[in-house]
Design a binder for these strands. Structure first.
Lengths: 216, 216
DNA sequence: CGCTATCGTGGTACTGAGTACCGTACCCGA
DNA sequence: TCGGGTACGGTACTCAGTACCACGATAGCG
């Protein structure tokens, strides 16, 4: 982010807050930054682009973190990767909150924001897919887990953006723990065993039999 | 959908397929339909709008189906509601497939499509939220379940759009069964018993004990 | 020191989406 | 036959986005 681009971005956010997104023209932004219209489009491909940061480096870092995961530390790799994304937003501070106010009200921008998140979801999905080894197209479980990760992250992020959370990273840990416990029950709660038993007998009978067996 | 709007829509899809989305102007579409440019914008608010059907009635039907659900038939209500959406696409036939080819290649349209799905996700989320009675903002479980429903639906829909599925409704049933079993393990699979056993012994020992006990 | 290549910038002119507004034809009931 | 509503067509405008060119500063090289 060069000095010039920074000037343009600040001018844009000020005007968007004061006048509204639609009422602000690119000319207005350039004028306020003391620059020409051409210069704006040299630094940002569109009027929307000035709002959203370049996520490509974050996507790369997420991919790298996931690729570095060994067979044993899958949940921690996922949590770490989600934390990278979360931190990116939190580090932006008020800028992220201002963007949130815009995306909440302008449908066009909301769609764009969602599209960004889909990029992350794609990374998680490919990771989970490689992990489970299922073929593309029929791997609903991978899709579900990947979307659950992103949904959990977004929920924590939104709470922070609305100022409802002071320690988003701790909340992220909780949220990711819930997600992993839902999608891989055996992985949570060390010392617990989950058994799926097909039987014609009712649950109480089975439970009693198990307790009796464990007392042997 | 009036006769005029139908003519415009058909002309638009023909041109989008032949010339590409970006290369086709609204003038081209109107000319091909033998109508004026003003007429196009009277029937569709934007160039994108001609691609997407009006989902508001489907959203309403989904909401109504969910609202009509009794306390006992939650999973079937969710499945029914998802089926309403799926059927809407399937009934469109080749039109839906043509739209899919466009949304796959044009990022702008893809974002728009996803935004549409968010509408449905919202309905499911509110339904689940009312069901669980959790407060807004802290109800991660509701968000997760709602997104899982939509993801499952979309996966089935995409398979049909790509011609990989002959009986999408049956696949939807399977997918929704998986989702509900993940999010409410006790509810799936009649005749199965799920036991959570805390024990210092390893899983194999426990399993062996259970099998032995059930043979009694 | 002067010449040139390069890069960031500003300006101009264009295409195309979307809006506002007006004129007109047609249909339909009074 | 006469209003009045409705759907269409045309014109003119704003603004996003693209293409292109011209200018100035700076840096490297002879």
């Amino acid at each position: 982010m060069t000095e010039t681009a920074q000037r343009l971005r600040e001018a844009a956010f000020e005007l968007f807050e004061q006048e509204g997104y639609d009422a602000t023209t690119v000319d207005d932004i350039a004028d306020r930054a003391g620059l020409g219209r051409s210069t704006f489009f040299r630094h940002f491909r569109s009027k929307e682009d000035v709002i959203f940061p370049d996520h490509s480096d974050v996507v790369t870092r997420v991919r790298d973190r996931l690729a570095a995961a060994g067979p044993a530390d899958t949940p921690s790799a996922v949590t770490d990767a989600a934390r990278i994304v979360l931190r990116r937003y939190v580090d932006e501070g008020e800028l992220a909150r201002s963007r949130y106010r815009l995306t909440r009200t302008i449908p066009l921008l909301r769609a764009r924001e969602i599209a960004h998140m889909q990029q992350y979801q794609r990374e998680f999905r490919e990771f989970v897919r490689a992990w489970t080894g299922e073929p593309p197209g029929a791997d609903l479980r991978a899709e579900l887990l990947a979307s659950a990760i992103v949904v959990a992250h977004n929920q924590v992020l939104r709470r922070w953006l609305r100022g409802e959370s002071d320690s988003p990273e701790a909340e992220l840990d909780e949220a990711m723990a819930l997600v992993t416990s839902i999608h891989a029950p055996d992985a949570g709660d060390t010392g617990a065993t989950v058994l799926v038993v097909r039987s014609r007998r009712d649950a109480d009978t089975v439970a009693a039999a198990v307790r009796r067996a464990l007392r042997e």
